[in-house]
């Protein structure tokens, strides 16, 4: 557990996108995603423009496309939601392959899928090209409350530590015959989570004491 923790999605590399200042990148990404969201569904060419821009950015960043494609699975639950829409949306209906579907629902579902996918890809690209510390510094520059940035910094710093603890607990449980799919083992799972909470909290207390002993002063009295 060394000091240097890159986060899991970060792809180390050197490209104009990697070098760009984090606060500019965050602003650009949020603006771009807002633009995508504001694009009316039922049109085609604006989405083609967004997609082309995004693909250009991916090419520029030299992040492997296959890597990004694999990470797209986070949107699966909402793909299900989008596919469900045409069946239940209101408005005039049409027949597609023997199914009665709502026209407006189909358009909306297409829009949701396009916007969701472009949004996820944009966020993935930001994560892949931005180091955590740069991101935190960028958020601070964007006037996010200092306390929030600090909490986020602690969370990111200990993500791998607590994640590793959870992983070791899981290995220990599995090697003792734990079956994660069985509700009968929920008490075991819950005890593990309870232990994880106590350990995390106590680690927080230790970190705080270590900080205080090194001269840390809390937010309120600073500045």
């Amino acid at each position: 557990m060394g000091a240097e923790h890159g986060h899991q999605l970060h792809v180390h590399g050197d490209s104009p996108l990697h070098r760009m200042a984090a606060h500019h990148k965050v602003l650009l990404v949020v603006g771009f995603v807002l633009l995508i969201v504001a694009t009316p569904a039922g049109t085609f060419w604006p989405y083609a423009v967004h997609a082309t821009l995004l693909i250009g950015a991916v090419a520029l960043s030299r992040v492997p496309p296959a890597y990004l494609a694999r990470r797209m699975v986070v949107e699966v639950p909402f793909v299900v939601f989008a596919l469900w829409l045409p069946f239940v949306a209101t408005g005039p209906r049409m027949e597609v392959a023997g199914l009665s579907l709502s026209e407006a629902g189909l358009v909306a579902a297409g829009g949701l899928l396009a916007k969701g996918t472009l949004g996820v890809l944009t966020a993935l690209l930001l994560a892949a090209t931005t180091d955590v510390r740069d991101l935190l510094e960028g958020l601070r520059r964007l006037r996010m409350p200092a306390a929030l940035v600090e909490i986020m910094g602690f969370m990111v710093r200990y993500l791998d530590v607590v994640g590793g603890e959870l992983r070791r607990m899981r290995v220990a449980l599995l090697s003792r015959g734990f079956d994660p799919r069985s509700p009968r083992h929920w008490p075991v799972l819950a005890r593990a989570l309870g232990a994880l909470f106590v350990r995390s909290y106590e680690r927080g207390e230790r970190v705080h004491l270590a900080m205080v002993s090194r001269g840390y002063r809390p937010q309120a009295s600073r500045r």
Binding site: A147, E150, I151, M152, G153, F154, M155, R157, Y158, V162, F197, S200, Y201, R203, G204, E205, V207, H208, M211, P218, Q219
Partner: peptide
């Protein structure tokens, strides 16, 4: 706040 909320 900061360390504990972060760890939680």
């Amino acid at each position: 706040t900061a360390p504990l909320a972060g760890l939680v």
